[in-house]
Design a protein around this nucleic acid. Structure first.
Length: 890
DNA sequence: GTCTTCACG
DNA sequence: ACGTACGTGAAGACC
């Protein structure tokens, strides 16, 4: 028996709207890696799956509204007037909804001058004649007028998966009317959301009563004399024209000229490959997993096909013949984040069409393999060159000619894609033939290498294959972004420089740290005792929650600020409470010292390597969205300096040998100089070119002073804050908060600033505009940051993106510049054969250890190399210092 | 794991 | 009317 033909008609706009608002509270959780919101797409997808399962259609069409104006506007110009604009978070999703429908193999259609409703009505009518069983899916109850014995209208409920099915019986039940009377009711009642009025003072109840009696609007007016005198009758007479017009507006057209017919919309089924790609683009991980498990259950297909590989052993290695080849892909597996000490547990490499793999990394020392890694004529493609370099270095192997570094390139293409899992990144670049490490190795305490060779080796080879397969397309993207120079001349060489710095490490005087530790320990217990006495009880001082209770409930101090979870006890709050109770000062002191003790003394001791008494930080090169580095295990970029107690920690950072010193050079005001350069502000450039004190200069300008001698220290402090604010993408609120002035005053400062530095103002406007146009901002060296939020309808979200647009080119260009300086510096040290080692980078500062004899050389060379890193409209300025510890290099 | 706080540029 | 300075990492509490 032939199956019944089933037609599914979907009101695309209305379902997308419903889906969007149903998932509106989780809007920000549904964002893909490109910043696209995906909640409506997600909801739409859920609805589709649901309806496919329930209806099992043979023919499908999704209808969309074509534009704002339709023939209805010709009849009534205010039709759908006054509607608020569709949020951009939704409108940006429509093209992707359509893309998804393509992957589902479903036709979608829109027609100028008509609404989706009319397309649906017309096709439903055609289906009726041809004996289709039709389902219409919509969020709009108006479509219930189309219900017949053959056509059901499924109206989405709260969410999008639950629907209410309107058959003629159900319409009757719900409204007391037949489907065809729905338009009469709308004519009488009007429609707020479509903005047409109906008859004054007639609501649903009255309308139903009238229609029960007179059938239709025509019937009502034909028998208007039978209605007894009443206000209602007056309104009916008064609004007669409106009633007919509104009915006409409400009536869905079932005979419009369509370019598609039922034959064109036969459903051919889902294109799985296309859908997988689409879900990857959307980051719909769960759907992908579901598809994967579904297809695994369906044994006919597997998502990942493993390659054939040769498992290496010493013996095997002796037997096989490896030809010299000019390019290989290589992956070294290190089990754990910290590649300085985590176990080296395996490797895989691809040469030509062959894959080799082993658990024993010592095999790499064999000259047959070693020659690939250490030969400068053999290019090696890797994932995370720095990690690989350090790992190989532990085997005594010197990785020489990295060509493609997947991790690094991926980061440059989009600095917000900052995962460091190969599987995850591969997915983002639409390559699916490799799993995430977590799926193979597990995580946390359960982290371990699979015992089965097939599984483990397969995974390692898949990684190598991924590197091999993704190289071309990613390098092409890099080229089309004009980022090749950034990659070849900056990031790739930098990764090696960083590796060398990490491997060198910096020596820690653990005795000094322990000494300070016991001093601080005593002070901490003294202060603790005092606080407990002042509070009248013991409590956990480290708990903001418990402290809050003591301060704001027991001691009844005024609440300045609240956090999500309770009272804020942050420094800014405590400072306002100062003087109200002696306990406050003690708490502040306690906090200060406890921080030093736990983070910098105990924390640092924990990560100091016993064998060399050094800390080997890891610089994260692919994390920050601006291009800066970050430093972990330990973080050496936030060692205390501002307060004297904390600064002492720096006494524990010492050179590796007696007779050596710590040497430090930093860029002075590099971010403001970068701003002066990219904004071309004449006033600001002059200040720098003439070597003026920039903060004092700003003070003179915004306070209208004639002479530098008129600048008080307070004015300079405030001007400095304004300068910082400018760099951050200023707001009056933020500035006011920072220097404790009124918002109004802050606003005046900013206005005055822009008046005297008009170039800066223009830059700020220009960069935001450009971010809106292009969707991203760039640094001097074409590092790119995408800012999709710049189009957000949410003020806060949008404002944040705007500030980011202003800040990123400044912060990021400064980061570019010091990176260039580091590469040149390392090169210089090697060329000159100096013993000096470059050890640390702290954003605008480079720190070296150096034999005493080389200090005079560094004093000349380092500033000149840093100066020359880039040529700006204005000079850069570098200041240097040195001493026997980091503390003394001031 | 998330939140709060605080260290740095 | 809204409600925020830009970029990070680590520790401890709490769930």
């Amino acid at each position: 028996m032939e199956d019944k033909k089933k037609l599914l008609l979907i009101d695309g706009n209305s379902v997308a709207f419903r889906a969007f608002f149903a998932l509106h509270q989780s809007l920000e959780r549904f964002v893909n890696h490109n910043g696209l919101h995906t909640n409506a797409i997600y909801g739409f997808k859920t609805m589709l799956d649901n309806i496919i399962e329930n209806v099992n259609p043979t023919h499908v069409l999704v209808a969309f509204d074509a534009g704002k104006k339709t023939f209805r506007n010709g009849k009534y110009s205010d039709y759908k007037g006054g509607r608020s604009k569709t949020p951009t978070e939704l409108s940006e999703q429509f093209p992707y909804v359509k893309k998804m429908l393509d992957a589902y193999g479903m036709k979608h259609y829109e027609l100028q001058n008509y609404e989706a409703d009319d397309i649906i009505g017309t096709l439903a009518q055609q289906g009726e004649k041809k004996g289709f069983e039709t389902t219409i899916v919509t969020g709009d109850r108006d479509l219930t007028q189309l219900a017949t014995s053959q056509t059901t209208v499924a109206v989405t409920q709260k969410g999008v998966t639950e629907v209410e099915n309107y058959t003629p019986d159900h319409v009757e039940e719900k409204y007391g009317l037949t489907p065809s009377q729905i338009v009469d009711m709308k004519g009488l009642v009007g429609d707020n959301s479509d903005n047409y009025p109906g008859v004054a003072k007639i609501g649903e109840k009255t309308a139903v009563k009238l229609l029960k009696q007179f059938e239709s609007i025509e019937g009502i007016y034909a028998n208007i004399d039978d209605i007894k005198k009443s206000k209602m009758k007056e309104h009916l007479i008064e609004d007669k024209e409106k009633a007919f017009m509104c009915k006409d507006l409400a009536r869905i057209r079932c005979d419009i000229p369509l370019e598609v017919g039922l034959d064109d919309i036969a459903w051919t089924g889902i294109d799985e490959k296309e859908l997988v790609e689409f879900f990857q683009e959307m980051d719909f991980k769960r759907f992908l997993e579901k598809m994967k498990t579904d297809s695994q259950n369906d044994t006919s297909r597997k998502v990942i096909e493993n390659v054939d590989f040769i498992a290496l052993s010493q013996k095997k290695l002796d037997q096989i013949d490896l030809n010299e080849d000019e390019e290989i892909s290589f992956y070294l597996e290190i089990l754990g984040e910290n590649y300085h000490n985590a176990p080296l547990v395996g490797f895989a490499l691809n040469i030509g069409t062959k894959y080799y793999v082993a658990r024993d990394t010592k095999l790499l020392k064999n000259s047959k393999l070693r020659k690939f890694l250490e030969n400068e004529n053999c290019s090696v493609d890797v994932f995370d060159g720095k990690r690989t370099f350090v790992g190989l270095n532990r085997l005594g192997i010197h990785l020489t000619a990295v060509r493609f570094d997947l991790l690094l390139v991926s980061y440059l293409l989009d600095t917000s894609d900052n995962s460091n899992d190969l599987g995850k990144l591969a997915q983002m670049h639409n390559y699916t033939q490799v799993l995430e490490d977590e799926e193979i190795y597990g995580k946390g305490a359960k982290l371990k290498i699979p015992e089965k060779d097939a599984e483990y080796f397969g995974h390692l080879c898949n990684k190598v294959r991924t590197i091999k397969e993704l190289r071309k397309s990613m390098m092409q993207k890099l080229a089309s972004n004009h980022q090749e120079e950034l990659y070849y001349n900056i990031e790739r060489p930098l990764s090696i420089v960083l590796a060398e710095m990490e491997i060198d490490g910096i020596t820690v005087d653990t005795n000094r740290l322990e000494e300070m530790g016991s001093e601080f320990k005593e002070r901490i217990s003294e202060i603790k005792e005092t606080i407990y006495q002042e509070a009248g009880e013991k409590f956990n001082l480290n708990s903001p929650k418990q402290l809050g209770v003591i301060l704001f409930e027991k001691m009844k101090l005024p609440v300045i600020k609240k956090t999500k979870t309770g009272y804020s006890t942050a420094v800014s709050v405590l400072e306002k409470l100062r003087g109200m109770a002696p306990i406050i000062d003690n708490i502040l002191k306690y906090r200060q010292i406890a921080k030093i003790q736990s983070t910098y003394i105990e924390g640092l001791l924990k990560v100091t390597f016993k064998k060399d008494s050094k800390v080997h930080t890891r610089y994260t090169q692919t994390l920050t969205s601006t291009g800066r580095l970050s430093s972990v295990d330990p973080n050496l970029q936030n060692i205390p300096i501002r307060l004297p107690e904390g600064k002492k920690i720096r006494q524990a950072f010492i050179p590796q040998k007696k007779g050596w010193q710590i040497f430090s050079s930093d860029y002075s005001q590099i971010e403001l100089r970068v701003l002066a350069h990219i904004s071309h502000d004449a006033n600001m450039q002059t200040a720098f070119s003439e070597g003026q004190d920039i903060h004092a200069n700003t003070a003179m300008n915004i306070f209208d002073l004639d002479s530098p001698t008129d600048v008080t220290s307070n004015m300079r402090r405030q001007a400095k804050a304004v300068n910082f604010g400018i760099v951050y993408g200023i707001s009056d609120y933020g500035l006011a908060q920072n220097i404790g002035i009124s918002r109004k005053q802050a606003k005046e400062f900013i206005e005055k600033y822009f008046q005297v530095f008009p170039g800066v103002k223009e830059y700020m406007e220009r960069i935001v505009e450009s971010a809106r146009e292009k969707g991203y901002v760039e640094t001097l060296f074409k590092r790119r940051r995408y800012l999709p939020d710049i189009h957000s309808s949410n003020y806060n979200v949008r404002s944040f993106a705007e500030r980011t647009a202003m800040n990123t080119p400044i912060q990021g260009s400064a980061a570019d510049i010091i990176k260039v300086a580091m590469i040149n510096m390392q090169k210089m040290l090697k060329e000159k054969g100096l013993k000096t080692r470059m050890l640390l980078q702290v954003h605008d500062e480079l720190i070296f250890e150096s034999p005493n004899a080389e200090i005079p050389i560094l004093e000349k060379v380092v500033p000149s190399v840093m100066d020359a890193a880039v040529s700006l409209d204005i000079p850069l300025k570098v200041e240097s210092s040195h001493g026997i510890t980091w503390f003394d290099a001031k």
